[in-house]
Design a binder for these strands. Sequence first.
RNA 1: GGUCGACUAGCUCAAUGGCAGAGCAACUGACUCUUAAUCAGUGGGUUCAGGGUUCAAGUCCCUGGUCGAUCACCA
Length: 516
Amino acid sequence: MTEYTHLEKIRLQKIEELRAEGINPYPTRAERTHTSAQAITSLQMAEDSTSEGSPAQEIRATLAGRIRATRPMGKLVFTHIEDGDGKIQLFMRVNELGQEKVDFFNKYYDIGDFIQAMGVMMRTRTGEATLLVHDFKMLAKAVSPLPAAKDETMEDGTVIRHAALEDPEIRARQRYADLAVNAHIRENFRKRAAIIKALRAFLDDNGFLEVETPILQPLYGGAAARPFITHHNELEQDMYLRISFELYLKRLLVGNLERVYEIGRDFRNEGVSFKHNPEFTQLEFYCAYADYLKVMELTENMIGYVCDTVFGTRKFTFEKEPGKAYDLDFSTPWRRLEMRQGILETSGIDINNHPTAESLFKAIVTKHPHKTPDPHVTRGKLIDFLLGEFLEPTLIQPTFLYNYPRDISPLAKPLPGDPLTVERFEGYAAGFELCNAFTELNDPLDQEQRFLDMQEDYTDDEEEKNPLDEDYLRAMRYGMPPNGGFGMGVDRLTMLLTNNRSIREVLLFPALRKEE
RNA sequence: GGUCGACUAGCUCAAUGGCAGAGCAACUGACUCUUAAUCAGUGGGUUCAGGGUUCAAGUCCCUGGUCGAUCACCA
């Protein structure tokens, strides 16, 4: 049984009284001739086309939207409503409506209600485009008061928000309320949609086929992450939610689909943080006859295209921490930095001088006694440690970091002449990882050995042990064209381009603990 | 999972261990160009939950909850 607050009880009472007067507070149909922006533009155009002295053409409009503020003034009422396009002022007077209707409005209409208003566009004394209302109708009565903020417009045009909904928990749990009162949050999600649309457009235009591969999988793979496990009753078997698309997309290359991509949800059963959500949106593409250098070009062009079409610029500001803003420039070409060189420059250690984990570990603790990695890990993981500790924070401008250690890259092709290194790159910006790509391994015998090596490396670490995917190897034995593959967190890209520090700001419904 | 912090009216926030408050929102009234409208008045609280210390707890202590920051984890 719902418990109502004092404010809600007052509104429930109003609903009862409306019904008693034969007025449906939730009518089935609504009408609208103009959005707020259309009405304002129409008025402007009518005024512009008017020759001096003669009256402007009358703009009749029916608007619909949510009441965001009311200012009753005796026989007048000013109200702002908000629709999908923005806000617009309504002006109600006894002159047009009669005292009874004005009183009726004041008595029964609250902030948060949806209203339909018909009238004529005009300008108030202050010049604001306003609908002079001739009639109005309730479209949907709100029972609960919105956590409505008040906007104060200063003389210089800046808007100060008073008592805005800011509690991060309410904002995430009740995203509907957050969206209803915080216009800039809606804008984030419009941008997110536009970014995804632009990614699709770029790939479509470059001959890629959009495909959909299984989310429910009998085996998981393509990344080192713990999966979510579920169960299929009829098949009597456990299934996994995918942790990546990689192995399925590459099966399609075996099937002669030369360029494929997928944008969809990945699921990783791991910690939640300001940059991790258990489900997140991933873009992966695979391109036959390309190598990682070609993929670098595709990547910088693709992101450049997104910047141009969605934002009209390649220059962005990203505030990584409060007061610590970076200017980012996504112009091409991005800086290219070999990982060995980058680690040498930032940590003073040349990984090529340390071909074993023991030797590299010794070098790290000698050179940097205050930063001690786990001594029981592989050489690749130690390199990853150096990368994270020293190099990553310096990668502010968009940078391709390339040539990665083989043993942390089980699906990437070796660099010719260097058995410890593979043709892999990661794209960085603002000091964090944006994407990951490599020249894909297409040698079925090498791939099988890599899988077996992985099992060996992680025998004491059950969580990271990927199951050996026999069907993937079977596919590869039919022959897979040489190809370059790419993966990118779409949420991360959106964070960067919309200057949001937390992934929760770019997810409509981020994962939260169950409410109680 | 570890550490630290936050949680008070619908929203944003106050309150030396000593009567739980303000602005906005709500309610009543005044007001024919307002825009955080203004003015006069009224109501509104299990101070996250439970225990403890104390003459007295929003405040101090313990346990739990949620959120946040950070670390770990995330090749």
